[in-house]
Measured scan of single mutants.
Amino acid sequence: EQIEAIAKFDYMGRSPRELSFKKGASLLLYHRASEDWWEGRHNGVDGLIPHQYIVVQD
């Protein structure tokens, strides 16, 4: 089940696996990879999304 999230802040990925996005961006989350990271998608690209930078939608 995919979960929708909105970016709270701009984020610049620090490795090829991390996604970069702007504040207000819509993100799709697949699952929680760790306490700090989600596996997800932004603009058709899959990668890691930092939990602290997003708001998960109910």
Results as ranks from 00 to 15, higher is better:
Ser34Asn: 15
Ala25Phe: 05
Gly40Arg: 00
Trp37Ile: 05
Leu28Cys: 07
Tyr11Leu: 02
Phe21Arg: 01
Val56Pro: 13
Ser20Asp: 06
Phe9Ala: 14
Val45Phe: 03
Met12Ser: 09
Ala7Gln: 00
Ala5Phe: 03
Pro16Ser: 12
Ser34Phe: 05
Tyr53Ser: 12
Leu27Tyr: 00
Ile54Phe: 09
Arg17Lys: 14
Tyr11Asp: 01
Lys8Phe: 08
Ile6Ser: 10
Val56Tyr: 14
Leu28Glu: 13
Lys8Ile: 08
Leu29Phe: 01
Arg17Asp: 08
Asp46Phe: 03
Lys22Ile: 14
Arg41Asn: 09
Val55Asn: 10
Ile3Arg: 08
Ser34Gly: 11
Lys22Trp: 09
Leu48Met: 12
Leu29Cys: 04
Asp46His: 12
Glu4Cys: 12
Glu4Gly: 08
Leu19Lys: 00
Gly40Tyr: 01
Arg14Thr: 06
Tyr30Ser: 12
Tyr30Met: 08
Ile6Pro: 02
Gly24Phe: 06
Leu29Thr: 01
Tyr53Arg: 07
Gly44Phe: 08
Glu18Cys: 04
Gly44Lys: 06
Ser20Asn: 10
Lys22Ala: 11
Phe9Asp: 15
His31Glu: 14
Arg41Val: 12
Leu48Ser: 12
Ser15Lys: 11
Gln2Met: 13
Arg41Ile: 13
Ala25Met: 13
Phe21Pro: 01
Tyr53Thr: 10
Leu19Met: 05
Asn43Glu: 07
Pro50Leu: 05
Gly44Gln: 10
Tyr53Leu: 08
Glu4Thr: 07
Arg14Lys: 03
His42Phe: 08
Ala25Ser: 12
Leu48Cys: 09
Asp58Arg: 04
Glu39Thr: 07
Met12Ala: 06
Arg17Trp: 05
Asp10Leu: 02
Gly44Tyr: 04
Gln2Glu: 14
Gly47Cys: 02
Arg14Ser: 15
Ser20His: 05
Lys22Asn: 11
Asp10Met: 06
Glu4Ile: 12
Gln57Glu: 15
Leu19Val: 12
Val55His: 15
Lys22Gln: 15
Gly44Leu: 11
Gln52Gly: 13
Asp36Ala: 10
Phe21Asp: 01
Asp46Tyr: 05
Leu19Phe: 02
Gly24His: 06
Ser15Pro: 08
Glu35Pro: 14
Asn43Gln: 09
Glu39Cys: 06
Ile49Val: 10
Gln52Lys: 10
Gln52Ser: 11
His51Ala: 13
Gly44Val: 04
Leu29Gln: 01
Ala5Trp: 02
Ser34Leu: 05
Arg14Asp: 06
Gly40Trp: 00
Tyr53Ala: 14
Ile6Ala: 05
Ile6Arg: 08
Ala33Asn: 15
Asp46Lys: 15
Met12Asn: 14
Arg14Ile: 09
Asp10Pro: 06
Ser20Val: 05
Gln57Lys: 04
Leu48Phe: 08
Ala7Glu: 00
Pro16Asn: 05
Lys8Gly: 08
Arg17Gly: 14
Val56Met: 11
Ala5Gln: 01
Tyr11Ile: 02
Ile3Lys: 15
Met12Gly: 14
Arg17Thr: 08
Gln57Asn: 09
Gly24Ala: 06
Pro16Val: 07
Val56Lys: 12
Ile54Glu: 00
Trp37Gln: 03
Trp38Asp: 00
Ala25Gln: 11
Lys8Asp: 07
Ser15Asn: 13
Gly13Arg: 09
Ser34Lys: 10
His42Glu: 07
Leu28Ala: 07
Arg14Phe: 10
